[in-house]
């Protein structure tokens, strides 16, 4: 059994599809792709798939992930093309690659999420832990951020996108420039992380 990692974006109005609806759309596109999928057993078999942590409704994304199992030889590039012709507007596959056996599972390395938040004075980056002790909800993090920036709480979600998922908070600077706001879910506090390298 082989594994493939699929990287996809969720842009524009596709942000209005729930996590469940997004999963369904991707599953259907996968079924059409010709990829020899491996199915779960049981009363209601489904393709063996795992997804990166759910994205809240209304948030766009540049780099979400989906891991699937398959059997046999296959042309991943061609499968990606079919999938891209079979997705609702706004959902698109950016990359597909085969994983080696030693590469960690999706859930092991999607522990931090980086969000780009547009604002009047330019965009800011917000980081939060999606698992572990410091785990936080985006809603709470945004409330804290808006307060810090002097915006009314509950300012709109439009335009926010999750731009990356990471195993540790040190990797984020590749995508976020030199400083990000980090919301610590345990303390309920917003702090500023700067690139020390």
């Amino acid at each position: 059994m082989k594994r493939a990692l699929i990287k996809y974006a969720k842009r524009g109005e596709a942000a209005l599809l729930s996590h469940r609806e997004t999963m369904r759309s991707l599953e259907r596109a996968l079924r059409r792709s010709g990829l020899p999928l491996v199915f779960t057993s049981g009363y209601n078999p489904r393709p063996r798939m795992s997804f990166s942590p759910a994205l809240p409704l209304g948030i766009q994304a540049e780099a979400e992930y989906l891991e699937v199992s398959f059997d046999g030889e296959t042309d991943l590039e061609a499968a990606m093309q079919v999938m891209n012709s079979a997705l609702p507007k706004g959902l698109s596959i950016i990359d597909i690659q085969e994983l080696t056996a030693s590469m960690p599972k999706l859930s092991k390395w999607t522990r931090y999420g980086l969000y780009r938040v547009p604002g009047d004075v330019g965009e800011v980056f917000l980081l939060l832990a999606l698992a572990g002790g410091k785990q936080a909800r985006l809603k709470d993090a945004l409330a804290s951020l808006w307060q810090r920036l002097g915006l009314p709480i509950g300012s709109e979600l439009r335009g926010i996108s999750r731009v990356g998922l990471y195993a540790s908070d040190e990797e984020v600077f590749e995508d976020a420039g030199d400083s990000v706001y980090f919301f610590d879910g345990e303390l309920g506090e917003l702090e500023v992380l700067t690139n020390s390298v």
Binding site: E13, A14, L16, S18, S25, R28, A29, A86, P88, K89
Partner: peptide
């Protein structure tokens, strides 16, 4: 609720 109902961007 369920904004997907109103998008019209289906496959």
């Amino acid at each position: 609720s369920h904004p997907g109902r109103y998008l019209g961007t289906e496959v």
